[in-house]
Each structure stands twice: as structure tokens, then as C-alpha cells.
Design a protein around this nucleic acid. Structure first.
Lengths: 145, 145
DNA sequence: GTAAGTGTATTATCGCGATAATACACCAGC
DNA sequence: GCTGGTGTATTATCGCGATAATACACTTAC
């Protein structure tokens, strides 16, 4: 009930493959403790219904997670989150690391002063219900190749 | 790369459409001042050769840039970077803003303390040729290409 | 004027992710 | 024992980006 089923109302972007976004979503649920070791997860068909995706796509995501040791499936009993705490712990670092990597790689090519960058991240990360139409009025001109 | 033609040796990822990565590359070149207002850019066929992509993909990228007012083309004379300084100035903010947005959105779901996050960004952004075999105890067996 | 290069457009093929429709072996409940 | 649910697998179709091979109007160079 109030728990807000961890696998509903996920909005997919049209860029990345859906099955990978599903995997990522599960990793996020694990990283934030909403999914825990040994916990049962929905069947492929059920997840397809819940997430409004094709069961085959759900199967592909589960297969991927299976290969990444995130979930385990014995016979035809429902799949569960792995009990390997080592694997579970690593997920958080993996998610954060990937995000930081992508971000830094993306922004390195634009030559942004570190402090300006950190400020931007801080404000955007901190603002919860706020909305700024635009930041950076152009005072960021201290740039040279 | 002393001469360093601004449109060579660009490594594409296999995730995003190539033509969009080309557009992004041009934006980065503009944002860092390597491409300036009015400057002539290679023809579609030439860019195809330089970037080792199909001329049609180059055309698609140019068409996209044309629609975004990044470049202008009169008749069949070579396309040039727009002279609209307003547009040019906006690019830098756009690139940074998008990167920050994506990063924050990506990392918000994992519930990371701000300071930890900023530290990670700072170290990764600062490190030039350094490599840390171990960072957070997570053996991220990287496989997500 | 001819040739070469330009921007532009069209058509076809390929790969891949998503979807769809099944099919099959397995196990639980009644 | 039959039904329904499970995990698993196969085949086909669709969309889209990338590639490929042209085609055409235009302009510049010679």
C-alpha cells in the first residue's frame, strides 16, 4: 500500500533501450534500499503489465539482470533479488560512478571552471520544488582554449 | 594535434544517433571558441570523409544544425557558422545545462549526499592522467557498452 | 561549354530494439 | 488430471538510425 510498488509509474526515455532502463530502475531500487536481498520480484508477464511494456522486454531485462547476478531464478519459482551482499553493495557505487563519469566526460569538452560547475550541480541538486527558468546570464566568459 | 582540425578524430558512442553526436561536437567546438561566427565549415561530403561517416549522415547533421540556427547556407556556397552572437552565446549554457540536468536527474534517484557527490565530481574532473584502481569498495566489473 | 564540386533529395538495404503471437516444459491448486 | 501460472524460447513485424547508391540543379574553374 503506502509503499508505492517499486516497479510502477516509471517514465522511460526514448533514447536508451527500454530493457536497459528497466535494469537501471531495479538497480536504483536496490541502491536506495527499496529492494532488498532475497526479496521476490514480479513475474515477467506481471512486470510487463505493471510497467506497461511487452513481456518479452521484461524477460530481456530479467535475463540481463540474471547475467549480472542481480537476481536469481530457481526452476519456475518467482525470481528474487540476489542474496549476495557484495553484489548489492557494489550497485550504488556503480550507478554513481557511471553518472559522474558520463557527466565529467560530457562537460570536460566545454572547459568549465570547476567551481562554476560545482555551484551549478549544487543548486540544481538542492532545489527540490523550485524552478529556475534559466541560470547563467553569460558571466561565465572566462574561457580560453 | 597541432593543426588539430576541429572535425577530425571524434570518437562516437554507439548509443546516441551519430548525426546528433556530430551536432553536439560542433556545439562543443563553438562553445570553446574553436569555431567562430561566420567561419566556413566543410562540405557534407568532405565532413563525411573527415569524420569517417556517411555523407548522408553528415547531411542530416547539417540539416539539424540549420534548423537550430547554428549554421547558415546560401545557395551552394559552403555552409558557415551563424553570425548571430546571441545564438552562439546560448550554446555554452545549453551544453552545460543539459549535462547538469541529466547528471542531477540521474543521481537524484540514488540519494547521494551533496558533499559526497561534489567531491566525486571534483576529483574526477580534476584528475587529468590519474587512475585510481579502487575508489569506493565497489568492484564495478564494467560491462555496459 | 565542360568538368568538378556544391547543396539537396530519393530510394533501398541493414542492424537492432520493441512489440506481437505463440509454443513448450514445469509446478501448484482444486 | 485439468487449469492456470511460471520461466524460457522462437519467429515475425515495425520503426529508426546508418549506410549505400544515385539523381538533379547550381556555381565555379579552366
Amino acid at each position: 500500500m503506502g509503499t508505492g510498488e517499486a516497479w510502477a509509474s516509471v517514465d522511460f526515455n526514448s533514447r536508451d533501450p527500454v530493457y536497459l532502463q528497466v535494469v537501471r530502475h531495479f538497480k536504483e531500487q536496490i541502491a536506495t534500499g527499496k529492494l532488498q536481498a532475497g526479496q521476490v520480484i514480479p513475474s515477467r508477464r506481471e512486470l510487463g503489465t505493471l510497467m506497461k511494456i511487452n513481456p518479452n522486454t521484461a524477460q530481456k531485462a530479467y535475463k540481463e539482470m540474471e547475467e549480472q547476478q542481480l537476481i536469481v531464478t530457481e526452476g519456475n519459482s518467482p525470481s528474487r533479488i540476489t542474496g549476495d551482499e557484495e553484489v548489492l553493495r557494489a550497485i550504488r557505487s556503480e550507478l554513481i560512478g557511471e553518472a559522474v563519469d558520463a557527466f565529467v566526460a560530457s562537460v570536460r569538452k566545454v572547459n568549465v571552471p570547476v567551481e562554476e560547475l560545482l555551484d551549478l550541480v549544487r543548486s540544481k541538486y538542492t532545489e527540490e520544488t523550485n524552478r529556475q527558468p534559466k541560470s547563467d546570464g553569460g558571466g561565465t566568459s572566462g574561457d580560453q582554449s
